[in-house]
Design a protein around this nucleic acid. Structure first.
Lengths: 353, 353
DNA sequence: TTGTAAGCGTTATCAG
DNA sequence: CTGATAACGCTTACAA
């Protein structure tokens, strides 16, 4: 003997209690369809009473959509630190407020990104996909474009025609941040400025290096090759210190200031400067990038270029919502501003310069 | 006129090419069912050729399961910083290696957690739910237990019978970490040790405070109420500095060392100590908690209690996999060890103590 | 505004 | 080991 009017077919029981057909229940839960307000109320009450919630699987199967967005990260560091966490938190918050769920998928960069993404889309019928990667892989990106699902690149801002990949992107104007930092140093009288860049080829690095060159040219300062170094984000503190040491030990003429691609690199540079008996900021100025909370706790507190993960996440969320509702919209490129936070690691250029 | 053998019913075409029925295709993709190896190969080849991937929505609808795990965070900070990011990354990696997808859902703690969780389960038919929260809410947790879906609490370790909520948990033995720190200080000759705790009531705080009391009792040292303060994780540096200042200015007898519930609190305490002209570690010792990378960049480098987010995430992932495959398994409580990382912010107690 | 019928892609069940 | 059939819970299309 099977259970009778009990337990089976929750939705049908909701319909029965509300005195309507199953179809009306569906209409009520699928949003703003044409249902009389009073009918809607009856259905809602019955549903609340029975604890009914629509089955997303059935809905996804029927409609081919899934109120789901994928967030794919291709990075050996996984989610990343404070900055990327903030980005994701803001993003998720923006989307969940509109009833969308977020799948988070992390892949090491050696795996094939496009495969991973395709898997996510095909498997979960994501309406939009967000992808964040450390390093540009043109081939994989070209594949993404042919997927039919809107793809948004997070934390990437093409600044030249070649860098524009025809995908929607949201990212920081990193170059502008570096330009502000250099202008700040120039205003303080610095004429010999170095740059400790991040991992070569990484998206965070490319625009910053270009920004540095532009800013140096703008100020008609010499671009001394020996003062422009690449560090490794994965060993930022150590490589920052090493490169700074190397500059101090090898260069004939020494810079009076250095702009770094991360606060950690900057911390390494500060340590190296101290080892060479430079007192900061009297003898030497350092600028970081990220404006991490702990940068302010260093001795001296670090001047840094800040970029808000929350801003990035919010903009990303809004763009994704737009694309979710209109998948055929043209790709958008959204730039988010950085801002210079001046603390005590930068000061007037030494008098003898 | 409709498209003929073209595009429609991918799975059927796979079956056709492989010369089998739809059912066999299903069996091949649903895992280790009984299919002849040679048949399986034919199906796989055909599927690869056509780019066929099973539709998870249909599968979820039919089976009621979804190869999906939910990760719900109840915190005003969202995902959290480096530590929580690492936890999640390791967790996701563990699960995706077994073909499970992870939903990440962040809710502010003022919203009702259990509602959010129930929503996730009912909507996506998650096999297991992981929940991380800052503060204990017994009522909400009791509701979670009645959900029928296995729930795992992340970053929480019950240490007393009352704290055991009957749910699976994975967390650090925070108290043990504090005990190690106090022992370290005692070994250095310190007899007057203070504690700057985190936000009262938070899971990260409770065990640490208990650990401190135990350790002080173990060493037969006085527990001076004035040296035991609560800070606020949301304003950790500032409150750490304020409380430390307050101790220096108000206490008749001063501590020679302080153990803090986070590196940020410790950084604040260090700043306060310097302001009172204490040279670290000669005049005063400070221990942090978290072993953040930047703690090593402070002046002096911070001794700290480390807890690996990666370890937590991995253990969490393994437990969740177990529960996914066996939802009726008894709740497990898994403790992960902390470790003391000694740097230069701790040294022998001042001679005059 | 509401109801009826058919079918989305998969798997449980039972038969071969 | 493999195949036929029905059903999972919902929504599109049309009818009332």
């Amino acid at each position: 003997m099977m259970r009778q009017t009990k337990e089976r077919k929750l939705a049908a029981r909701v319909a029965e209690i509300a005195g309507v057909s199953l179809m009306t229940v569906s209409r009520v839960f699928s949003g703003a369809a044409s249902v009389r307000d009073e009918t809607r109320q009856r259905v809602m009450n019955a549903a609340a009473e029975l604890g009914y919630k629509p089955n997303v699987a059935a809905r996804a199967l029927r409609t081919g959509r899934s109120d789901t967005v994928g967030f794919v990260i291709s990075s050996p560091w996984g989610l990343g630190g404070d900055f990327h966490s903030a980005t994701f938190s803001a993003f998720e918050s923006e989307l969940s407020a509109r009833g969308l769920s977020v799948f988070l998928s992390i892949s090491s960069p050696d795996g094939r990104l496009a495969d991973r993404v395709r898997q996510q889309i095909l498997a979960h019928r994501c309406g939009v996909l967000v992808v964040r990667f450390d390093e540009i892989r043109p081939n994989e990106l070209r594949e993404l474009q042919m997927l039919g699902t809107p793809v948004v690149l997070a934390n990437y801002l093409p600044e030249t025609p070649e860098e524009n990949l025809g995908l929607s992107t949201v990212g920081f104007n990193n170059g502008e941040g570096i330009v502000m930092a250099v202008r700040h140093l120039v205003a303080l009288g610095h004429k010999r400025i170095g740059h400790l860049g991040g991992t070569p080829g990484w998206v965070d690095t490319i625009g910053r290096e270009r920004g540095f060159r532009n800013a140096i040219a703008e100020a008609s300062l010499p671009l001394e090759a020996d003062w422009v170094r690449s560090c490794d984000f994965a060993r930022a503190y150590d490589t920052g210190m090493e490169e700074m040491n190397s500059i101090f030990s090898q260069s004939i003429v020494l810079p009076t200031a250095v702009v770094c691609d991360s606060d950690e690199i900057a911390a390494g540079a500060m340590a190296a400067a101290k080892r060479w008996n430079r007192s900061l900021p009297r003898d030497f100025s350092v600028v970081g990038f990220d404006d991490t909370p702990w940068g302010a706790m260093l001795t001296p507190p670090l001047t840094s270029i800040g970029h808000s993960g929350l801003d990035l996440g919010r903009a990303l969320g809004k763009l994704v919502l737009r694309l979710f509702n209109n998948p055929d919209a043209a790709p958008e490129i959204i730039a988010i501003r950085t801002k210079l936070v001046v603390r005590e690691s930068t000061g007037p250029a030494p008098a003898d310069s």
